[in-house]
Design a binder for these strands. Sequence first.
DNA 1: GTAGGGTTAG
Length: 566
Amino acid sequence: MNAWIPSPMAAATRYAIKTLDLLFVDRDLTRQRTSRSHCAAAAAATNTCEDLICRLASIAKRFPGPLSPPPPPPPGAKPRRRHPYHYHALMKAFSRAGQSDEVLRLLRDMKESGCKPNLLCYTTAIHSLVISNRPFEAQSLFQEMLMNGVHPDTISFSILAKSLAFHLKHFDSALTFLGCMVKNGSEPDVVTYSSLIAGFCRAGLVDDALKMFKIMHELKCTPNAHTFTPIIQFYCSRGEIRMARWILDYMHDYSIVPDAVAYNVFVQSLCQARQFEQVETLLRESDENGWMPDSVTYNTYINGLCKAGRVEDAFDQLEVMLGKGFHPTAVTLSILLNLLCSESKVVQVKSLLEKSVLLGWFIGTDGYNTVMSRLSESGQWVAALKLFADMVKKGVSPDTHTFNIVINSLCKGGKLGVAKCMVRSQGFIADSVTYNILYCAFQTAGRIDEFHDLFSNMGLLQDSVTYNIVIDYLCRKGRYSEAIYFLRTLEDSFSPDVVAHLTFGLVKGGKLGEVLSLFRDMLDRGLVIDHCIFDSLIKAFCLKGSCGGMGIYKLCVVLDVMLGIR
DNA sequence: GTAGGGTTAG
């Protein structure tokens, strides 16, 4: 392994490599590696794939080294002069590199050397924890800052308010926090409000976002493109393209010119709806609408075309993108690798990655993650683990997503103990995806107590996917009352996504009385029964074969209750 | 001197 792989992942990586070396001599794995299906997959190569790989290689030649590895931060670097400014400069660099542990180390070093951290150092450290999804540690550090007599300002308050709303979805706390800001003499500004609006929109609470928008207006706080983009995103995510376009027009009417980010969200939505001609029009008219498409715009468009099977058009757009002077980014590469993988050429892509050094193209973490993920999904988890070893040997730093793919592969191979050790190894930062992968694996293996021991000290990592896993499991086991009880114990107990999962399980189990009771309860509380619940329910009835014969009567009863007409 | 917000792939 190359020496420059920085902490915090270094220890976890070393452990992983050691483990993999042991794993590859495992008899079962060796058998799987040489299985016939893999040989058949390797033999299934076609000219199409070769053609795509040639194109990729030709781009690599035209743009040598566009994805060069980031320079490694100096190991154990310390500022020459012990002044908060110098510490801050280093902390900022580590924070930008996503290395919050290093930021905390510098903060500790400051205190130990008698240099009192100032507001900026604390702010950067808190922000680093927030963007690394470590909200509780961010809150503790904020408390420590107050205890040390450092008074927060609008920026530090805003970072914590964003953490509460955007990451934790604790909106009541976020609003209370806003009140605290004012009491402490820090007025929320456009960034503070925009962060909260983004949090509301991300949680699907657009009405609350619009209320916040109204408050901004009343306080004469002028919104900008950052304020509107999450609202556009909300409507786009629901396929409400007309509403999204209306907001873009509204922005123009009020002289808040939407920028590339706002339009990129819209382009994504048009691509999902396969409205590629609209995308073309948007790009053609970009100049007169006052925005410049960027590499994200083209990546989004190229990805949309790939997903729609329009590979030639995708490569044409790649040419347009390159012609306009945009270098392919890590995302461009991921999109193209993903395209190759979706053509069932994962084996060839794996070999392309292994030869990437010869091609003169640095393939980074994201490129490896994409291919490893596809390998693992298609059941070739040993190949995914081998590619992981290859990536680390080339000096490409794994991130949490990489480790999640490795852990998923280990779980698929029944190596739960190894996965558990990797999560426990120093420097491993688990996220909600890690939590969900392991929860599923330990639950299926009937070893859920071990799972709880593993995560008991890691703070809250559950999300709606976790809740759905629990509900699916309880419904599969016929423990419907427990599933309903579980839903009611959740903080956001009637989240549409989770309700949709539960009603799906209940309908499949023939528990229509429980479904009706749940819907009546929701309607009594003034809650709206979301379209995703409707979709899930219809799917469950269809799967159960209830859309014909007498079964249709039961379906109609449920739909009437949903619509509040029975 | 330095700090905070919205987007794309997996």
